[in-house]
Design a binder for these strands. Sequence first.
DNA 1: ACCTGAACACCGTTCAAGT
DNA 2: ACCTGAACACCGTTCAAGT
Lengths: 198, 198
Amino acid sequence: MRADAKKNYEHILAVASVVVTQHGADASMRDIARRAGVGLGTLYRHFPTREALLDTLLRAGFDELTAKACELETASSPDDALVSWLHDVVTFTGNYQGVVAAMIAAIEDTDSALHASCVTLRTAGARLLTRTQAAGLARSDMNGDDLFSLAAALAWLGDQPSSAPRAERLFRIIASAIITNRPSNLSLPADFQMNQNP
Amino acid sequence: MRADAKKNYEHILAVASVVVTQHGADASMRDIARRAGVGLGTLYRHFPTREALLDTLLRAGFDELTAKACELETASSPDDALVSWLHDVVTFTGNYQGVVAAMIAAIEDTDSALHASCVTLRTAGARLLTRTQAAGLARSDMNGDDLFSLAAALAWLGDQPSSAPRAERLFRIIASAIITNRPSNLSLPADFQMNQNP
DNA sequence: ACCTGAACACCGTTCAAGT
DNA sequence: ACCTGAACACCGTTCAAGT
């Protein structure tokens, strides 16, 4: 990459980080180019899609979350590890308004520049869930895809002004639905049934 | 209202219903006017905001859901009533893509034409929740606002192609977090009686 | 009264022309 | 190689001019 191109690339990223933080993932591409003092075509040359820009912007955070999941796979209590990681994912995603909508859209769109990151993240979470389920500490009737959906739903609620103030409570409610706290090998009353409704 | 105006009004609604069903709540207003064979100004005269159009479009459904909540307030099992109503809300909202985002935004925007409907709906749900909590069948650390947020989150997941296929499972997971089959509070009134499993 | 559509200020995206 | 910005096809919203 030519020196001037590299300078542009980095400057665009710095400006985009500010603009996306302020105005969310749907911020005007034109606005980003304008504020970066760069032609609109230059922005699109470096980041052919909005998703490509977001992926580069969030790369460090994504990698950190994936690394954290790997570390937590050897934590002493699988359920605490899962909940802690879920919390980190929701918190990170909540930093940029509207980013979770792009992520959940990318998970099924193999052409999206965000696709790979999201799949990696989902897989990392799935491992933590499987481990917790194996210990009988998470409900067995869900999988990694469901976990990712629930994380996305929580992050989306955090994006909404009407729900954001209660985000932590909503997190605890959903976390409690995932974690069972009841090892499956424990003897239960004969009439015991999971908290389910028809 | 003049006869020609009334005819326009009703034709716009009919066309809008089709367009919003097809393209979601963010459908182009221009497109709606175009397909209705009406000037753009005529559309805005009858429905000054997108929310006003949506509210009129969804009015019948909103009223039905509120009425259903009132009926269910005398149902034999409060928990079943709550879950059944919640399911109806999520299903109805899911009929129009993106409508739930408009609703959750309207709940805090007193100027929105959707505000009143959403508040009414939330209040109706809150009553069902309170009744279930009074019977010791719903977790006590949540309120009607939380219930509305959870319903919105479920409806939003239903809007996403990656989650929609698992919508029912996700519903059951969250429903199970709300419903508690055993009272969590140990210090109950002396005359408290468990009214389950008759 | 009511309707129309041009006008304005925005988008995302592309691409010929410049350096 | 890389950058620029006009061009194109869209938006939502308003409002002077028409019937």
